[in-house]
């Protein structure tokens, strides 16, 4: 175990000196922040209203609880803003009232919402006037955020594999594997030592992503099962890439090929009906995606989690058994 850690610590030390490796090590954190920035929360409004600055302060205050308000100097600026590509409605003063200015290609539902908001303001309707009771499932995270998080967690597993590949390629370029084999560390110990960095990235990357994006109240035990399963994929992928490539750029090129099954698995899971799901049953990412999605939507069960995890381990084991001779030869 001590020698495995020595191998791992060497990899960490060298990876910190390499830009690509360093980038891979910190990218899960960047992913988490980016997801938070681009995915809307449940409290985010879906309508943008433009007003003339200072024209009606009271209206501006009223509307800001229900819409994203932006203000402009005069009518000309207001018109210019509305004419841009995104969906913005302007309330333009007209005599005693207002007219709504739009481009013309906005969604009808949004226009209705803009009309209603104006009517509510004119009739001085307040939230307290509503008698509706709110019942919910306690979900606080929107589907887009969930989707991005799930994809990024799988991507983190690929990056973990990439780190292993980079370290193996380094050993191949420097021809140091033979020197390691003339030391008392066993080949299994060496392989496991080399695997640690690729296993840790999906672990800390996934946990980091979940915490940064606000999914802290999930079933962590079930999630850990799927994260550990992702580590297996990561290690296997890392050794395959490391052994089959002679330069980091070659390995990076091969990684692109993996985005096809990853993207395909997500697309099929999200877009195709149940009768077509079998098309991607062979892709491990499909099962991790399904499992993680159930956990993120609070619909998971231990039975399903273990089945999905078992399938991924099973597929990985088959691939590993087929590739054992090649992996051994590559590490000689």
């Amino acid at each position: 175990m001590k020698k495995m850690l020595i191998i791992f610590m060497r990899d960490v030390k060298v990876n910190k000196r390499d830009f690509i490796s360093l980038y891979i090590l910190i990218v899960p954190i960047i992913f988490g922040i980016v997801i938070n920035l681009i995915a809307p929360g449940v409290n985010d409004t879906t309508i943008n209203i433009a007003l003339i600055e200072g024209e009606n302060i009271e209206m501006q205050e009223y509307l800001k609880d229900f819409a994203k308000i932006s203000v402009y100097k005069d009518k000309a600026e207001l018109e210019e803003r509305v004419a841009r590509r995104d969906e913005v409605f302007a309330y333009v003063p007209d005599g005693d009232g207002y007219y709504i200015l739009q481009q013309g290609d906005e969604l009808e539902g949004l226009l209705d919402y803009a009309k209603m908001m104006l009517a509510f303001y004119e009739d001085d309707v307040q939230i307290e006037d509503s008698t509706a009771e709110i019942h919910d499932f306690g979900r606080i995270n929107p589907p887009l955020k969930r989707l991005l998080l799930n994809i990024m967690m799988m991507f983190t597993a690929i990056l973990g594999g990439m780190l292993i590949a980079i370290n193996i390629i380094e050993e191949k370029i420097d021809k140091t594997i033979r020197a390691i084999h003339i030391t008392p560390i066993s080949r299994t110990g060496y392989i496991l030592g080399k695997s640690i960095i690729g296993a840790i990235l999906p672990l800390y990357g996934s946990i980091g992503l979940l915490l940064i994006t606000g999914f802290s109240d999930i079933n962590w035990y079930q999630m850990m099962v799927l994260i550990v399963v992702s580590m297996v994929v990561s290690i296997l992928f890392g050794f395959i890439q490391g052994i089959n490539n002679t330069s980091v750029m070659d390995a990076a090129g091969s990684v692109k090929m993996l985005f096809l099954p990853l993207g395909g698995a997500v697309a099929v899971a999200e877009l195709l009906s149940d009768k077509w799901q079998w098309i991607v049953y062979w892709i491990p990412f499909y099962w991790t995606y399904k499992g993680v999605d159930e956990i993120l939507t609070y619909q998971s069960s231990w039975q399903n989690t273990l089945i999905y995890g078992g399938i991924v381990v099973g597929i990985s084991a088959v691939v590993y058994i087929l590739l054992i001779p090649k992996i051994r030869k590559g590490l000689e």
Binding site: V14, I173, D174, K175, T176
Partner: peptide, 9 residues
């Protein structure tokens, strides 16, 4: 070894 094999980084 005949071919030097040390970690270049």
């Amino acid at each position: 070894f005949e071919q030097s094999n040390v970690y270049s980084k």
